[in-house]
């Protein structure tokens, strides 16, 4: 009798099921109406099937976002798992759209689906890429802005994985501060 190796036919399960969302800025519609769920996946193979099927971030028009969130968490501040949370934010220069954007976003996705933040991966809610004329943005959202150890670890690992130089400082801001800011910048709760 032939012995079948399970590696040959079982897809590789991820720790979490993930949902990929797409936002397209149509000013005639509400913010929520512009947000669409593309698909969900929970295996390595299905992640790539989806990733290989969709446009690279750098091909999207200005005003669009991709968001990858754990199943059950909506990519908005109001969600129960986000409302006391915040985000690590990286703003890219215009030149970086061609040089870094797609590489940074894929690396971010691999950090999430691969659970690269060890025990602190539980604090991760998702990640967002915003395509904007004035400078694209990448963010990792976490669930609680008071969890300093988790946030710091996530920020350090993310920065290292993207290959961001040590001298470049990235900041973490609470969604509450971002929502109530008066100027164009939000104060950082943490930096790495």
């Amino acid at each position: 009798q032939e012995v079948v190796n399970p590696e040959d036919y079982i897809k590789h399960p991820l720790q979490n099921r993930w949902a990929l969302w797409f936002f397209k800025n149509d000013k005639t519609k509400t913010w929520q109406a512009n947000l669409r769920l593309i698909s969900k996946f929970d295996t390595v193979e299905d992640f790539w099937a989806l990733y290989n099927h969709i446009q690279l971030s750098s091909n999207l028009i200005s005003g669009c976002d991709y968001s990858l969130f754990k199943d059950g968490i909506e990519p908005m501040w109001e969600d129960e798992r986000n409302k006391r949370g915040g985000r690590w934010l990286i703003t890219l220069s215009k030149q970086q759209r061609r040089a870094d954007l797609d590489r940074f976003w894929l690396e971010t996705l691999l950090c999430l689906v691969g659970e690269a933040f060890d025990d602190h991966s539980d604090d991760v809610c998702g990640a967002v890429v915003n395509i904007r004329t004035k400078g694209d943005k990448l963010a990792i959202w976490t669930t609680d802005y008071e969890n300093k150890d988790a946030i710091t670890h996530i920020g350090q690992v993310w920065k290292e994985r993207l290959g961001v130089p040590h001298k470049v400082i990235i900041g973490y801001q609470s969604h509450a501060d971002t929502a109530t800011k008066s100027g164009s910048t939000t104060k950082n709760k943490f930096v790495v």
Binding site: Q15, V44, E45, A49, N52, L110, V113
Partner: peptide, 20 residues
């Protein structure tokens, strides 16, 4: 334990799905 996957392991699967 957590199902953790290293980046190179994940990258190894990128074009495998299309071949099967």
């Amino acid at each position: 334990g957590k199902r953790q996957y290293k980046r190179d392991f994940l990258l190894g699967f990128q074009f495998m799905a299309a071949c099967t």
